Computed example of a mutant assay.
Amino acid sequence: MSGTVVSLRAARKARARDARRAEADANAARHGRTKVEKAREAAEAEAARRRLDGHRRDEP
């Protein structure tokens, strides 16, 4: 015998927890963006909009 006692219930829960965490990481990589990335993208879009509006010609 190996001498190490392992609770099968705890091992099953740990395996399920690891599987959920792996799935969550995959979803985050596929769909998620950090708050900083969202803010940077919004700032870039706003700067592009201002740049475009600055080049707008006035209609007579």
Rank of each mutant, 00 (worst) to 15 (best):
R56L: 12
R20G: 03
K35I: 14
S7K: 07
A45G: 10
R57M: 04
G54L: 04
R20N: 08
A28F: 15
D53W: 07
A28V: 14
D25N: 13
A22N: 09
A29N: 11
E41V: 10
A24C: 04
L52I: 12
G32M: 12
A14V: 00
A39M: 05
A11N: 00
T34I: 09
A11M: 03
R57I: 06
A22C: 02
R17S: 11
V6A: 02
G3M: 04
R12I: 09
A11F: 01
R50N: 11
A28M: 15
M1F: 12
R50A: 12
D53L: 15
A26M: 10
R56N: 06
D53S: 10
G32D: 13
E23L: 12
V36E: 15
A39W: 02
A11P: 00
A48H: 02
A28W: 15
V36Y: 11
V5C: 11
R20T: 05
R50S: 07
E37P: 02
V36T: 15
R57G: 08
K38D: 06
R50T: 08
E41Q: 14
R15S: 11
R30P: 00
A45L: 07
R56Q: 13
R40E: 10
A10Q: 12
P60L: 03
A47D: 03
L8Q: 13
D25V: 12
A39I: 06
A10L: 12
R33T: 14
E44H: 02
A11Y: 00
R33N: 14
R12P: 00
R33W: 10
V5W: 10
K38Q: 10
P60G: 03
E59A: 11
R30Y: 03
H55C: 11
D53G: 08
R30I: 04
T34V: 08
A48K: 13
A43P: 00
A45H: 03
R57K: 13
S7R: 09
L8D: 07
